[in-house]
Amino acid sequence: MKKFAGERLSSEEMKEVTHEEWAPAVKYAWSCGEAMSRFLNELKKGKLIGRKCHKCKRVIFPPKMFCEFCFRPTDEWVYLPDTGTVMTYSLSYLDKDARRIEEPILVGVIAIDGASEHMGIMHYFSEMDPDDLDFGLKVKAVWKPEKEREGSVTDIKYFKPLEGEK
């Protein structure tokens, strides 16, 4: 037994003390709703889709069934190209499990062409030098092969600089 309360026990010491181990079954299902479901299903086909509000003329991407500016349902589905502009980015030297890594992961928010201002999706960047990543860089989506797509935002592998860009 440890001298002080709150000291971490080693796995050897753990065998000697009475304890309970428990893994609660905390399963959940998160419904994507109408707009997000369509968005994901279109991703599987290799397309990006948004919703247009006829009142404020905005193209909402990712799509929403309700315009939060006009307080009314949105009106129309619109397909968007898979190109866009880097709005903001980050070079991450930590991976998803917060482990330190040598080569940075490039992530950022991409404003998709044709969508209204202040909208975009967060994604990875690749096929570029980290030094070249900058605000305003034009990028294009690189998709997974069609048979590997599963209707997830990861059906886009990453965004790469558009042809002709540096």
């Binding site: 309360a5 026990l9 009475t18 304890h19 181990e21 959940y28 997000m36």
Partner: peptide, 20 residues
Amino acid sequence: EDFRHWLGDMEAEYVYTSGI
């Protein structure tokens, strides 16, 4: 059938020692 949902499982395992 077009509606999508996401299944998840929160890993919240714990060990409770009975103490001194």
